[in-house]
């Protein structure tokens, strides 16, 4: 376990300043050994290359989509002895982001789930179709706040 000063996130942020000179990454710690580093949409792939190439961090635990203060945020959770998350704020109304599948085939199902639940398009994904929802699903992405407010409790 590392202290706050030595978190991997800090080192990743330093490396990101080199590959993304126009971007100032924010680092924020989360309880229990995790920290997120902010990355722009077009900086996701360079950031991933930094994680894979320079730090040999290859384990992607999950991709979470969340609506924080009205902004649709994607969180890519990695783990190597401690947690390091890449946080990407998506642009509305496009909601597009490049896919990670060509680098990490393990991201496939996570991206498909975010696609169907939040309506995010992953550019370059080989097979972007719903994972869990039925084929005859009517109505929009069920996890979006707008969908929940429109359709009431659980949209039934």
């Amino acid at each position: 376990m590392t202290t706050n000063d030595e978190r991997i996130a800090e080192s990743v942020a330093v490396a990101l300043r080199e590959v993304l000179p126009d971007w100032e990454p924010t680092v924020s710690t989360m309880p229990m050994d995790d920290a997120w580093v902010s990355v722009p949409v077009d900086g996701l792939i360079p950031a991933l290359e930094v994680l894979l190439g320079r730090f040999d961090i290859r384990h992607l635990s999950a991709i979470t989509a969340d609506e924080i203060d009205g902004v649709l945020v994607l969180l890519y959770h990695f783990w190597e002895g401690e947690g390091i998350t890449l946080r990407v704020d998506l642009q509305e109304p496009e909601r597009r982001i490049p896919t990670l599948v060509s680098f990490l085939p393990g991201a496939d199902f996570y991206e498909r789930e975010v696609f169907e639940m939040y309506g995010v398009t992953f550019d370059g994904h080989p097979d972007l179709r719903p994972l869990l929802l039925p084929d005859d699903w009517e109505g929009g992405p069920p996890m979006r706040r707008s969908a929940i407010e429109e359709t009431g409790e659980s949209g039934r």
């Binding site: 989360m30 309880p31 229990m32 995790d34 635990s61 999950a62 979470t64 959770h77 947690g83």
Partner: peptide
């Protein structure tokens, strides 16, 4: 706030994110 917790379930790493 946000918190992440992981654990070793019988089938492997289980991941929770709670905001």
């Amino acid at each position: 706030g946000q918190a992440i917790a992981r654990a070793e379930a019988p089938r492997g790493e289980v991941f929770y994110y709670v905001r």
